[in-house]
Amino acid sequence: MTELIIAGFGGQGVSVAGFILAEAAMGLGWTVTWFPSYGAEMRGGTANSHVKIADGEIASPYVTKPDYLIILNETSLDKFEKRLKPGGMLVINTSLVRTGRGYRKDIKFARLPATEIAIGFNNAKGANIAMLGAFCAVSRIFEPEYLRNAVDSHFAGKGKHNPKNALCFNAGFESGMVIYEHMQTAEA
């Protein structure tokens, strides 16, 4: 079972990013659940979605101790960092975290300036997609081509295909790969 939480500002696309991951995992035959935060959440407030991916039946859809945290802003980091499993992986958007902020010592990191990456492609709303790219590189759950296509087909299904999403995904993936290779070297 892989459990993850994606969190950020409302409007950063954390719900849709989680939904795409769940859709992609379902496409590979896994059992999935996706649960959004809702209700009093609003644009500018915090939002999150919970995703579980498993071989068999999933009991509760709530993620209490995630294996992965994909965090798009500092408020969400403050809220969720303590929940990450020891040894778990934090994928963090450094564009929206104060320089010099400390992190837990017992976890792994993938840091990338996802908002700047997205703005660089003139696709400011694509920071979530860059984060998915980095997650793809460090988690090894999906082949990058597969997940990138899952992103595109999700938006195409809504009549919102955007070729810049693939660019954001690739840039995020490359940032993630640097970290992944560094981790492999460190472990070896």
Partner: peptide, 9 residues
């Protein structure tokens, strides 16, 4: 609310 809001296959 949980059953209504969650997504599954």
């Amino acid at each position: 609310a949980a059953i209504g809001q969650m997504a599954e296959a």
